[in-house]
Design a binder for these strands. Structure first.
Lengths: 193, 193
DNA sequence: ATGAGCATGTAACTGGTTACATGATTTA
DNA sequence: TAAATCATGTAACCAGTTACATGCTCAT
């Protein structure tokens, strides 16, 4: 793995692999396709595209655009394709997970039960919503993209999202139950013996 | 939420809430207790402790230590306790997830099947190992820490880890099956029609 | 007229990791 | 005698976010 090339660079390379795109396009595509497990900001995309074309991994072509600003459309080069394949071939390195909600619960106590419950319910709702969103995307994908050779891979990542959200929903339900049980056994304010 | 105070600071405050600790102790404790959803480096801990004691959130006491280097043991102050409680009361902000493995699979195709399978099997093994580690920790905790008032909260975070790893194992199994099926339908090298 | 969408880009900042320096003691 | 553990700390680096600047067009 070459030094100075971050995962963002490979992500960009990957999207250019689908076809020529501008920085703006890449951002939109990220939002529509991999948002649930990846993100990129313009502040990352534009400087990287510049650097990558200087390194010969992509080539830019400026498209004049009536009224709207010009578009700089980048295409991946053979060298870029090779670098992408190299990256794909190397084992993915696990990124350190940091989960603030878990940290708060870890430090929590009976005093914070009301707040914990609120947070768990919010989290549950978020992931329940994601879950149904994923199901919609899935059926949409299966119909609109039926013959695309990469469809199975996209569905795999979706499946991951579904399972993760389902696991979180289940965990929230269980934890909410536990918290309620806990505070009914020894209530915060009024305690009847 | 005060500006300039990162989640790391609250994590440190949280651990000091369990009792006086040195920077070294905090690091060890993080490793032993919340490693599966949180991490801190010395390069983060020591400067923060310094700053926090300057801000009156903690107080340091130097312990002379025969032979070994001196220990600077920090205790949380009432002001620190208050700030910790404030943080606990605010909803946890979701940290942007970035999953390299999913990204690679998203960009993958039949050409990379062999490599994908290797990575999925590795990931599966990792999380299967974590899973049994969690189960050990759990029974250990239930016995050794049986009467601790915060035990239920620790178990909740463990439960999260268990469910997450189980979901990942399941997803790996499913994805491996899908990949094998895929390459048996249209093999990479030799194709019989 | 107001705001959303299109489109590119830079600068400042922040949060965090890694590498380094130091040095005694215990264990293999 | 080599390595691990104890223990603290700094400096350099890096990746990534946020805020800002610019400006046109189209729909409300």
């Amino acid at each position: 793995m070459k030094k100075g090339s971050s995962a963002s660079q490979y992500a960009i390379l990957g999207f250019l692999g689908f076809g020529p795109m501008s920085g703006y396009d890449i951002k939109q595509t990220v939002e529509r396709s991999v948002r649930h497990f990846w993100n990129e900001s313009y502040g990352q995309i534009y400087p990287l595209l510049k650097r990558m074309s200087a390194e010969g991994l992509a080539v830019a072509k400026t498209e004049r655009n009536h009224g709207k600003p010009d578009r700089k459309v980048y295409s991946i080069t053979p060298k870029g394709k090779k670098q992408l394949q190299d990256w794909l071939a190397h084992p993915a390195k696990a990124q350190p997970s940091r989960n603030e909600l878990l940290l708060k619960i870890f430090f929590s106590g009976k005093e914070n039960s009301a707040n914990d419950l609120r947070q768990l319910e919010r989290t549950r709702a978020e992931h329940a919503a994601l879950l149904s969103e994923y199901l919609n995307i899935e059926s949409d994908l299966r119909h609109r993209r039926a013959p695309h050779p990469q469809l199975p891979y996209w569905l795999m990542t979706l499946d991951f999202g579904k399972r993760r959200s389902q696991a979180i929903v289940d965990w929230c339900d269980q934890s909410i139950k536990t918290l309620r049980h806990l505070s009914s056994k020894s209530p915060n304010k009024k305690r009847r013996n």
